[in-house]
Nucleic acid binder design. Structure first.
Lengths: 156, 156
DNA sequence: CCATATAGTCAATCAGGTTGTCTATCATGT
DNA sequence: ACATGATAGACAACCTGATTGACTATATGG
């Protein structure tokens, strides 16, 4: 007759799990030629891939202002992960594209995440991991790439 | 013979799960008299409870500079969640204590987290939830309150 | 009693977010 | 054809929360 665990452990474990994976990803990325990548860069690159090809659209996708999105794009441009070109059909728009290096970092990240998942599967078993993923899918929103991440945690 | 899910889904689901819980916590806190609390305040109050009773110690616990910890303490003081008093045995130190309101917010948070956990249990089953918690415990560090949260995600 | 370490504060700086304003360009309706 | 309104991006001012460096006051220990 064991009682329920305290509810506050659940969010902490979820966050720690996230943090462990992201930290290990970036340690490995740094080892493999991407020492400048920050956790949020990967999200932004993903958001650019999935249709956020101007500052305004990217801002909408990420849930920040177009100015903030513009600054983030500048940073990624300076680091060599994206490049901008004027849209010939609408010269107001500047289309953001991943560079080879940007695409490379995403492909590499995907491989690293697969490795990390395999390590978790070794630790807790593939079935349990699948169950964990399935359960999380049931209690989280389906749209996996609606971040609103930047500045969400802090504030005031 | 289904193949493994892509590894990148796992961190996203963990983060989304965390975010869902924290967002619902703060919606409920706002409804119950704590509209000014931000996600990180709860962490800081916890850290203060567990022995971070000066700016320096709090900074160490949270993984930020003592100056940053001092500013956070100021904010929480202004919001009425903590108060400071000079340590009579070492007048350099200013001891931070939770106010009644601060302690209240933590007790309330604990109740809300328990409710949220119960809702997850209703959704996926108590057994699966226990398994999920147990599995996460195996793949995350045991020390649940080593945050380093502030500023961790962004940077550069 | 002096030397060193520690706690807190102040100041300058930086990153990344915000809003407001401005210009250039596009789209539309008369 | 053109005036009007909407949109994309850039610029500026500001806010918050972090950083480092310098400084003061207080403890501590040889």
């Amino acid at each position: 007759m064991s009682s329920d665990p305290p509810g506050f452990e659940l969010p902490l474990r979820l966050f720690l799990g996230f943090r462990v994976l992201i930290d290990e990803l970036h340690a490995e990325l740094a080892r493999q030629g991407h020492p400048d990548m920050r956790p949020m860069h990967g999200f932004v690159l993903q958001a650019i891939l999935r249709g956020g090809d101007t500052a305004v659209e990217l801002g909408r996708t990420l849930g920040v202002s177009k100015q903030a999105a513009g600054k983030t794009i500048e940073t990624l441009e300076r680091l060599g992960y994206v490049e901008r070109a004027t849209d010939p059909r609408d010269t107001r728009r500047k289309i953001v594209r991943l560079t080879g290096r940007g695409a490379d970092s995403l492909a590499l990240s995907a491989r690293i995440f697969d490795d990390l998942r395999r390590r978790w599967a070794d630790e807790i078993g593939e079935e349990r991991l699948r169950a964990l993923e399935a359960d999380l899918r049931r209690v989280t929103p389906p749209d996996v790439l609606r971040l609103d991440v930047p500045g969400w945690f802090g504030g005031q």
